[in-house]
Amino acid sequence: MDWDDLRVFLAVARTETLSGAGKRLGLDPATVGRRVARLEEGAGARLFLKSPQGYALTEEGAKLVPHAEAAEAALTGAEEALRGGGGTGLSGQIRLGAPDGCANYILPQVIRAICDENPALEVQIVALPRVFNLSRREADLAIGVSRPQAGRLTVQKLTDYRLHLVAHPDYLAHAPPLRGLADLKAHRVVGYIADMIFDKELDYLGPLGANTPPMASNSVSVQLNLLRAGAGVGVAHDFALPFAPELVKVLTGSLSLTRAFWLIRHEGDAHSARLSRFADRLAQGIRREVQRLESRTCAQADPQDA
């Protein structure tokens, strides 16, 4: 089989459309279609079924995927070796998917340091409030808030992080007393849009009976800015609070949450020395940055503890 045809096959399998594959490869959809047809003819098997939703793998196509990915990994490894990928420096492009809280408050400092050390490296941070599909190569690596239970993936725990209820002093000064969790019913709560919570680990307010907050967003950054504007009380990451020093923690004795970040990679990339070195440096940087930022939240005390 021709590698160029296998490359086109993988792009269609991951995007499920000819146009999506063409964008990734710099080819027009008609050319992609011809290459798929040529591969199917040479293999003597139907690899895709076309439907209104796009191109779905047949049973034969699904069998070909791991072999095509193995060829892709071998070629990538050869390219890394030829350009010095076995050395200490990193180069080329790496796309990293992450939830927007991590992407906004942790990754800028970590990625800047990695790129300072590796001037030939290009890192793209894709910040989206959802789970990334590495099988479709939406990213080379992804950071998740829970450990995936399915898929051909390798998973590494990065670090725990903490969250607390916070509010602006101006809001608290004019709001009803907040002495316990039961008092939240009398307060404006800021949180996630309930039907857009993409991971159960993000359902901070559901157990409190506040799963339909009057002010909500699918973005952690928007929630934090609502709280900074004095909109109400809500759960915030401790690592984000140094970027919002006007906010104070409340009810720390009643609610203190711990969650974890996980680094997720496609199983086929396990032998990529380049991605492994990047993953190691990323993990070290994230652990240090979370610890550094969380250590700076001590001054943002709970006014109820005063």
Rank of each mutant, 00 (worst) to 15 (best):
Q223W: 13
Q156I: 09
G54K: 02
Q156L: 14
F198Y: 13
R296G: 07
S256L: 09
L251Q: 03
I94L: 04
K50I: 10
L47D: 14
H174T: 12
G285S: 01
R259A: 10
D100Q: 14
A150Q: 11
T88Y: 10
L90N: 00
L134D: 01
T212L: 13
N225I: 04
F261L: 14
R147D: 08
R112I: 11
V110Q: 03
Y204P: 11
V12S: 00
F198G: 09
G77E: 12
G42S: 11
H271S: 11
Y171D: 01
L96A: 07
T212E: 07
M196T: 11
A273I: 05
A11Q: 04
A71T: 13
G230T: 03
I111C: 07
L158R: 04
E41T: 15
L96V: 05
T212D: 13
K249D: 02
D302Y: 05
A279L: 07
R259F: 03
P242Y: 00
R281H: 09
L96N: 04
L205Y: 02
V189Y: 01
G101I: 06
A56P: 02
D269P: 00
D140F: 04
S135L: 09
K50F: 11
R277M: 14
A74D: 08
E289F: 09
A229Y: 05
F9R: 01
P207C: 05
F239L: 04
Y192L: 07
Y192H: 05
A13K: 04
L184Q: 03
A236C: 08
Q149K: 09
I125A: 01
G180T: 09
A240R: 03
R179H: 10
Q124D: 09
L141V: 06
V131M: 10
L255Y: 11
G191Q: 01
G54N: 03
V190L: 12
K23P: 13
A98T: 05
L181D: 02
A98P: 01
G253K: 01
W3P: 06
P245I: 01
